[in-house]
């Protein structure tokens, strides 16, 4: 792993990160003022720690802004085994992945766990570049069925059967 390069230029992304952090902190403080206080409960109420957390975020945001403005912010992304941080974002793959996840969200209750999971598996594999779709469908169905039976029978979960009710 190489040391993170230190940039001299002010980075727009860094400034947005700092700004977002401050805004998030302010939102927390604002929401904290809306927490009801029960008069019977006097000593340390439910607002104290939220105020501290909100203030902490504002301070961290200011700190990030200071680092960005003085060029001290480490510019870079997380290194990972399968991700190359130097590449630009491939929005097409991410978009397809999001579609697969949305399909899962809308399928899980009406169509059931097995169909939703198999769809997600095939869709996500396709999004990330797998083109042997017939094989993926087979693996997806087997895996989803094994998980369904294992977790429902073995561990007492109640994953939805959906339209396969009565069959599995």
């Amino acid at each position: 792993m190489t040391p993170t390069p230190w940039s001299r230029r002010i980075n727009i992304g860094e400034m947005l990160l700092a700004l977002g952090t401050v805004v998030f902190g302010v939102l927390i403080i604002w929401q904290t003022t809306l927490i009801r206080l029960t008069p019977a409960y006097s000593m340390v109420g439910p607002r104290v720690i939220p105020y501290i957390v909100g203030a902490g975020l504002v301070i961290v945001g200011a700190w990030l802004a200071y680092e960005a403005l003085t060029g001290r912010a480490p510019v870079g992304s997380t290194d990972s085994e399968d991700a190359d941080p130097t590449l630009p974002t491939d929005w097409r793959t991410v978009g397809l992945l999001v579609l697969a996840l949305i399909a899962y969200l809308f399928l899980i209750e009406p169509a059931g766990f097995i169909i939703a999971s198999a769809t997600l598996f095939v869709g996500a594999a396709f999004a990330m570049g797998s083109r042997r779709t017939a094989r993926d469908i087979a693996i997806g169905i087997v895996m989803a069925t094994v998980l369904y039976i294992g977790f429902n029978r073995g561990l007492g979960l109640s994953l939805p059967a959906g339209i396969l009710e009565g069959i599995v």
């Binding site: 396709f126 797998s130 939805p160």
Partner: peptide
């Protein structure tokens, strides 16, 4: 790798939805 990460997503859905049975939790997960 595509199959590995696809399987990770399936397990992620199982772990989250399996515990609560709520699609709201899936939205929070995403």
């Amino acid at each position: 790798r595509p199959l590995l990460y696809a399987a990770i997503l399936v397990f992620a859905g199982l772990g989250t939805y399996g515990l609560s049975g709520s699609t709201v939790d899936l939205v929070v997960l995403y």
